[in-house]
Design a protein around this nucleic acid. Structure first.
Lengths: 152, 152
DNA sequence: TTAGATTACTGGCGATTCACAAGTGAAAAG
DNA sequence: CTTTTCACTTGTGAATCGCCAGTAATCTAA
């Protein structure tokens, strides 16, 4: 019998860890939420440099766990596009807290201070805005409808 | 040169993952925060059943990363007691969000519904209470000064 | 039309990490 | 003393990991 998924416990912290408790999964979610990435190649190009087999296995697992949805790109039929489900969008508050924690405790953090301040000052509203931004297909920092501004 | 710690990036999400982005570290933090556990033997007895070598390596790593403080027990000189630093206590909001997410998306969750409701209704205040409870040496659910009630 | 990129993967390989079992030395308990 | 408890360490195989080299399908330019 394959893929008989045996959970370690019913603890909610443990449940989270079994879905995204590894060093890579949340980076994919981050790429979607903050940078508006959608495709295998875009994820692969992230500065953390994940290996191709790890990326492929994590994408498959996150899809199987109901965090990601995969569908063929309309513009380029070689490409697959990955998007967050509602369950995946609900991870945004967790990432926000992780970003706040790192901004506080990492002296070399790349987190923009004004963004972190904004997240702390108006948490609920900003999370709602982030969710809508990601749902529209943009990233919080990068994309046509990004929250923070444009690059090009 | 040993232990030359090479970070993958300055991204705050990545920073968090490099500190506690594995399937076990947060379970130790959970044991301290929610169940008031302090010693190697108590962590080892958790229902997820971590291996002895993994537990030892995670305790050492969390201490090295400034999340845990280790000191000899006063009552039993064979024992070491582990406690959260301020940096470690600051992880509480992250765990709260993980618990909320799992309570929402895990049909078999063991999270008490009334506790989750309380956390959502009065988040900031409850997090403050949790922090004080843990600082006093109790767990949120278990211990002399526990937030929720007593067992014995 | 065709040669060359690009894209999303898969497979091989050695190294690391993992789970599991069995020890170790120190201290406490009887 | 002897036994038990405690916090680890060590050893062993299995699984997973990081890196590299493909590959089939599709797009792109000449």
């Amino acid at each position: 019998m394959k893929h008989t998924y045996q959970r370690r416990s019913d603890c909610p912290i443990n449940f989270s860890l079994e879905v995204f408790g590894d060093p890579w999964s949340l980076l994919i979610i981050r790429d979607i939420v903050y940078f508006g990435k959608k495709t295998y190649g875009e994820f692969l190009a992230s500065e953390e440099g994940m290996a191709t087999n790890i990326l492929a296995s994590r994408l498959a697992r996150l899809e199987q766990r109901g965090i990601l949805l995969k569908r063929p790109s309309e513009k380029d039929r070689r490409k697959e596009e990955y998007a967050l489900t509602e369950k995946g969008l609900d991870l945004i508050p967790i990432m926000v807290e992780m970003a706040n924690w790192s901004a506080e405790h990492d002296p070399e953090t790349g987190a923009p201070a004004d963004w972190i301040a904004l997240m702390k000052a108006d948490r609920e509203h900003m999370i709602q805005l982030m969710r809508e931004t990601v749902k529209s297909g943009s990233g919080v920092f990068v994309g046509e409808k990004s929250l923070v501004g444009h690059i090009g």
